[in-house]
């Protein structure tokens, strides 16, 4: 529940920033990194709800097809949650590779949902650029999330590390 209070306002500020000042610049996919972070450390159903809400917010904010982002984010949460039992993203390169790969997966999932809704868009160049930028920033942003989530509850740092 605490994650909601931290990450939902963060997402709204990020989306506002992205659509006003930085609409022409490639930015890392913060919502994906939040989901990656939440799935890695959490074993609660709230993580799934958070992923859905972040995706829904993103869709509403961008006036996109409702469900396109939430579907990909929830599925990515499930994938990372299952993988986190065997794979841990402790080092910076591991975080970058994970974030980049998941960004590609997210792009493909979004395209699939759009096709299902009757919208055919070729966004491959953007997907690759986004994956690259997200991968480049992930080693910095993921530890920042850990720090952010530990502000109020110091014990969460221990719980967050694997």
């Amino acid at each position: 529940m605490k994650d909601f209070l931290i990450f939902l306002p963060l997402t709204v500020v990020y989306l506002s920033f992205k659509t006003t000042i930085a609409f022409s610049f490639p930015l890392p996919d913060i919502t994906l990194l939040i989901v990656l972070f939440a799935a890695q450390r959490g074993t609660s159903v709230w993580g799934v709800v958070l992923s859905f809400v972040l995706g829904y917010t993103e869709d509403v904010f961008g006036a996109a097809v409702l469900g396109s982002s939430s579907f990909s984010l929830v599925l990515i949460f499930a994938i990372v949650h299952l993988a986190s039992k065997r794979v841990h993203f402790l080092t910076a390169p591991a975080r970058a590779v994970a974030a980049g790969s998941l960004s590609l997966v997210r792009g493909i999932l979004t395209m699939m949902v759009l096709m299902m809704s009757g919208i055919y868009v070729a966004i491959f160049p953007q997907i690759f650029l986004n994956a690259f930028v997200t991968a480049a920033f992930a080693p910095v942003i993921l530890p920042a999330f850990l720090w952010l989530s530990a502000i109020k509850v110091p014990g969460a740092i221990r719980g967050g590390e694997r």
Partner: peptide, 12 residues
């Protein structure tokens, strides 16, 4: 604000 002029899933 302008949506969809950046990268990634910004197909809108």
């Amino acid at each position: 604000s302008l949506n969809g002029f950046g990268t990634g899933e910004n197909w809108t």
